[in-house]
Design a binder for these strands. Structure first.
Length: 500
RNA sequence: GUCCCCUUCGUCUAGAGGCCUAGGACACCGGGUUUUCAUCCCGGCAACGGGGGUUCGAAACCCCCAGGGGACGCCA
């Protein structure tokens, strides 16, 4: 039997997501249960959004959780490189095969044409998708257009009729009509492959035996299978996991939940507890015990025990489990060590001390001044935000805009935070000190504290966002309707700011 | 809108046709231990989405409906 090889293939386009860790956990667990290999591949074919910082953050977050891999961009391996941006030559030779066999074709349609096509299809309520316009081009026409340097993409052909039938390890037979499948772009106009193409090529050459991924991929599986068929390769076995959910059952998102692994680290969760908690999303030990290690999970793993209902990521239960780990797994010596490592990282303390030094007359003043750097969410109430000029509504708006602005920052540095606040104060036509007032309360729990801008920089985006969101919730929250209006206003503001 | 997936307590789940009067855990409520609180222990509340079949028997199997979710990008 073929050796089991699974992978996690994150895209380095944002914060390390708990959903990535969740899927990684099950892939790794399955591979190790079968004495196979678990590998990590970076899918950075989106040149615009991929960043090396994000890649580093993702690797370190997965490492923090103990989700180690035996092959990856950092450790190498026999199928290196493990970063798609370094594998371009391979995609180029592979796409040629599909063009030769007429399974792929050049498409010169403009974005404008595709847009109006889609609009027309929507209006006629017919299926939305590429209409095969460039399929009619002769070989000579194509050659000419390429020779003149006309911008183009490469798409895959899709059968006109029939169904794609495949078997999912968890869900059994799934049948999707080819008419539902669009002629997917395989190579973008920048010459780089899309996810669908690179993913199939790499999974083949990296000898991936089982693809365990989120159920959001079910509908594109036919494309992937078809590519394997076009190439004459053996396809892996697919297994689509349920998606982690927000409390309202929608797909877990940072708008509604802390999704960044960094948040859980910065809040002082133990990696063992977080990974245990993820392991009980959709899966249970045969004997029903809830506290277990990754090793115990591997020893008892049974993929068929996965339940398919989308599990709600419920922080309350994670809190209980984390407390259980702290109480039961840490003796006092270990507690001291881990707590100190978490709280007193030299680099961090070095940044905090200058902020409080001028305010300290005795060392006994330090803890009250700096406590909020070591805390989770401050204890605040709506009355904490009472202000002589700003209404509660204005304050909620400020807080929300600040969150959205912070999320756009490339580099969450003190200076960027400051200029963001200044810009926002201008745009909202309030004084900077008034704009900052709700931030002081939200971040430190008090209207007076150390520089809130420096504090935010030290706390980092994950904790900052959680506190700002908590403040909004304390003020009664923002209704859906209100949120829509704010989003529109925010976009307008952003556009005018861009034009400056 | 079209297609696909899913559906047991508020939440995570057990359940592979009779062991189900549906079990455990979190949360919540009550009680006990504790100088207080927390921990810990004990107890309580609370669910098979609806309708049809199949069967001697359905939470479990089939069909329909409803609800939820996802996909429909030169993002992954």
């Amino acid at each position: 039997m073929q050796k089991v090889r699974t992978r996690i293939a994150p895209s380095p386009t944002g914060d390390p997501h708990v959903g990535t860790a969740y899927i990684a956990l099950f892939n790794r667990c399955f591979a190790m249960q079968h004495g196979g290999e678990f590998i990590l591949r970076i899918e950075d074919t989106d040149q615009v959004r991929s960043t090396t910082k994000s890649e580093q953050d993702i690797l370190s977050a997965l490492n923090w959780l103990g989700l180690t891999w035996s092959e990856g961009p950092d450790v190498g391996g026999q199928f290196a490189p493990y970063r798609q941006s370094e594998r371009s030559a391979l995609y180029t030779t592979e796409i040629l095969k599909l063009i030769d066999s007429k399974h792929a074709f050049h498409c010169f349609c403009t974005a404008g044409r595709l847009q109006s096509l889609r609009a027309k299809q929507m209006e006629e309520k017919s299926a939305v998708g590429y209409d095969g316009h460039c399929l009619k081009l002769s070989i000579d026409e194509v050659a000419l257009k390429i020779a003149t340097g006309e911008e183009h993409v490469i798409r895959m052909r899709i059968p006109a009729e029939g169904d794609c039938v495949f078997s999912d390890m968890l869900r059994g037979e799934i049948r999707i009509s080819w008419q539902q499948i669009d002629m997917q772009v395989l190579i973008k106009s920048d010459g780089l492959p899309t996810y669908h193409f690179a993913n199939v090529v790499d999974d083949h050459y990296m000898q991936i035996s089982h693809v365990i991924r989120g159920e959001e991929w079910i509908n594109s599986t036919p494309k992937h299978l078809l590519l394997y068929q076009y190439f004459g390769w053996q396809a892996p076995i697919y297994c689509h996991m349920p998606l982690l959910r927000n409390t309202d059952k929608s797909k877990l998102s940072k708008r509604k939940n802390p999704t960044s692994i960094g948040y859980y680290r910065d809040m002082g969760y133990l990696p063992e507890a977080v990974i245990n908690y993820l392991g009980m999303m959709g899966w249970t030990m045969p004997d029903g015990r809830e506290k277990f290690t990754p090793q115990e999970m591997i020893e008892n793993f049974d993929l068929s025990r996965i339940s398919l209902g989308g599990p709600v990521f419920d922080v309350t239960k994670l809190d209980w489990l984390n407390g259980k780990y702290i109480r039961e797994n840490l003796d006092d010596v270990q507690f001291v060590k881990l707590f100190a490592e978490w709280a007193f990282k030299t680099e961090r303390v070095t940044r905090i001390i200058p902020l409080i030094k001028d305010r300290v007359e005795r060392f006994s003043d330090v803890a009250p001044l700096a406590a909020f750097f070591l805390a989770g969410l401050p204890e605040i109430s709506a009355s904490s935000f009472e202000h002589k000029k700003l209404t509660s509504e204005e304050i909620r708006k400020i807080l929300q805009f600040v969150i959205w602005q912070f999320e756009c920052l490339r580099d969450f540095s003190r200076d960027e935070i400051e200029s963001t606040c200044n810009k926002l104060a201008d745009a909202l036509n309030v004084k900077i000190r008034d704009l900052l007032f709700p931030l002081f309360v939200a971040i430190s729990g008090k209207s007076a504290s150390t520089s809130v801008i420096d504090s935010i920089g030290i706390l980092g985006l994950d904790i900052t966002r959680a506190r700002l969101r908590h403040a909004i919730a304390t003020l009664g929250g923002i209704s859906n309707k209100e949120s829509k209006a704010l989003e529109k206003e925010f976009r307008d503001f952003w556009q005018t700011a861009e034009n400056d």
